[in-house]
Amino acid sequence: MIERTATIAATVGLHARPAAIFAEAAAEYDDLEITIAATGEPVEEAMDATSVLSLMSLGVAHGDTVVLRAQGKGAEDALVRLVQILETNHDAE
Rank of each mutant, 00 (worst) to 15 (best):
I36M: 09
S54Y: 02
L53I: 15
R4H: 11
H15P: 00
A10G: 03
V52C: 07
A38P: 11
T11Y: 08
A20P: 00
V60L: 04
E3H: 03
A61N: 14
E3R: 14
T7V: 14
T7R: 15
V67W: 08
A92V: 12
Y29K: 08
G63S: 05
E44T: 12
E24T: 15
K73A: 13
Y29S: 08
R81T: 14
A49G: 09
A19K: 05
L86R: 07
L58A: 05
A27H: 04
L58P: 02
Y29H: 15
V66T: 10
R17G: 08
E93C: 00
G72H: 07
T5S: 13
A25I: 01
K73N: 10
G74R: 05
N89S: 11
N89Q: 03
G13C: 09
V52D: 06
A23T: 08
T35C: 04
V80T: 14
L55K: 06
A20K: 03
M47Y: 03
R17Q: 12
Q84E: 15
L58C: 05
A16C: 07
E3S: 14
A92R: 13
T35Y: 02
F22H: 05
E45C: 02
A9K: 11
G59W: 06
V12G: 01
H62P: 00
V67N: 09
A61G: 08
E41C: 01
T50D: 01
L82G: 07
V60H: 01
D48A: 06
E24N: 14
E41T: 15
A38V: 12
A6L: 10
D31M: 06
V80C: 00
G63E: 05
